[in-house]
């Protein structure tokens, strides 16, 4: 028996919108820790890892570990039927091949339940060890989204370079080149608008902008985004989900042929 009641149902709606274009089918894993997902895109270039901790739910009952295979497009269709202020409850019985999403309006005058078919998904679970990164950049999520969108109108790849001068996003395409430098800026009144650069070593890596742009669909989940770079690892683009957990996108770099 599984029953997870999320008062801020809009968080789940936003999570689905941020992953459904990257991943088609995925297993949602439910355990005492929380509700989580790990999935790669079909070309195995990017990976998404989601965690919604059990403490973030108003009610969290998960009698035994359960993995539920869902088509994310279908799940998104169902969650779009929930109002932004609705409370969402996810329910499943042991051994059932369906999951139920219950939507309650804040005033309790409308209650809807949507039952969705589960599917068997053979997915590979990767172990992602904690790592030391050469540089970690925290910046406003909207700023990062704007940069990715702007650069993708010029080129297909972005070079992200961190030096003591700041973080530079560069691209080149048929029509020309573009460079955007963001400097550390902690003097603003609002911490979520600051840019903080922690650099242990200068680092420069190249990534496909198509994936970066897809990651920025998570922008509504958090005011800030954290970009962790290491020359030997995929970049991690992390959006914290208020008091509940995170959504992390891992993207493998491109290298010279």
């Amino acid at each position: 028996m599984l029953e997870l009641r999320l008062v801020q149902g809009s968080l789940l709606k936003k999570v689905l919108e941020s992953v459904k274009d990257l991943v088609t089918d995925a297993n949602f894993d439910c355990s005492a820790t929380g509700f989580s997902l790990q999935a790669m895109d079909s070309s195995h270039v990017a990976l998404v890892a989601l965690l919604l901790r059990s403490e973030g739910f108003e009610h969290y009952r998960c009698d035994r570990n359960l993995s539920m295979g869902m088509n994310l497009n279908n799940m998104s269709k169902m969650l779009k039927c929930a109002g932004n202020d609705d409370i969402i409850t996810i329910k499943a019985d042991d051994g059932s091949d369906t999951v139920t999403f219950m939507f309650e309006s804040p005033t309790q005058d409308k209650i809807a339940d949507f039952e969705m078919k589960l599917m068997d998904i053979d997915s590979e679970h990767l172990g992602i060890p904690e790592a030391e990164y050469h540089a970690i950049v925290r910046m406003p999520s909207a700023e990062f989204a704007r940069i990715c969108k702007d650069l993708s109108s010029i080129g297909d790849t972005v070079v992200i370079s961190v030096t003591k001068e700041g973080v530079k996003f560069s691209t080149r395409g048929d029509i020309g080149t573009a460079n955007i430098v963001c400097r550390q800026n902690t003097s603003v009144d609002k911490p979520e608008e600051s840019t903080i650069i922690e650099m242990n070593e200068p680092v420069s890596l190249t990534f496909a902008l198509r994936y970066m742009n897809s990651f920025t669909k998570a922008t509504p989940l958090a005011n800030s985004v954290t970009i962790s770079l290491s020359s030997e690892l995929p970049v991690v683009v992390e959006y914290k989900i208020a008091e509940m957990g995170y959504i992390r996108f891992y993207l493998a770099p491109k290298i010279e042929d």
Partner: peptide, 14 residues
Amino acid sequence: SGKQLSITEFYRSS
């Protein structure tokens, strides 16, 4: 341009 690496080249199945 360049060669796209794969996530599975960095992380192993757990």
